[in-house]
Amino acid sequence: MLKVKNLEVYYGVIAAVRGIDFEVKEGEIISLIGANGAGKTSTLGALLNSIKRKGEIVFGGYDTKNHKTHTLVQKGLALVPEGRRVFINLSVEENLRMGAFNNDENYEHLKDEMYKLFPRIEEKKAQMAGTLSGGEQQMLAIARALMSEPKLLMLDEPSLGLAPKIVGEVFETITRLRDEGITILLVEQNAYAALNISDRAYVLENGQIAMSGDAKELIGDDTIRQKYLGG
């Protein structure tokens, strides 16, 4: 589904991602873990061509080199961005509508699904997204991404700011989405929970892949435990 070769991201002279290779197969949940500044967000940005990058990215059989972000979204890529980035001056419902921009015919049906998933935002559907609480915005950001019915869903720290109970529900939902056929690329600081639901994982350190492999094995790995799971 997604194949990345020798991906590099530079901000001026600073290298954020230095030549990484990885692969996401259809129907997998793949985790990308790493410390602050390791290059996780930059990698996701590069996959969407929303920041400049070098290297080869093949998505669904196409080299994405000359594609704009919006065409990639049309082709089935979606991102739940870091820091939510909901449209603060639009209502909750209008935000969902923006998520379904290229998917109008399924809007009503999907909207109901989202409200079932996050009843909290249904209570707030007419409220401006900017006045939602942080966690409510996070729920909205996830729902908005799902409104496009992506083939590959990328989530940048989806558990950020969510109550533990909701975190649990979100991870369950991710598993369920995978079972329904959506492929998942997950960036998480809550590495334990992420690895738990993932098939495979890549560990980023200073813009390079330091380790990769079966998620369950990585949970058992001593260095991983020490570095990312808090001992």
Binding site: I33, A35, N36, E82, G134, E157, L160, G161, Q189, N190, A191, Y192, Q226, K227, Y228, L229, G230, G231
Partner: peptide, 14 residues
């Protein structure tokens, strides 16, 4: 402090 540890992994949180 409003969610000071959000976005940090367990070690960074520590």
């Amino acid at each position: 402090l409003d969610e000071p540890a959000a976005g940090m992994n367990p070690n960074e949180t520590e």
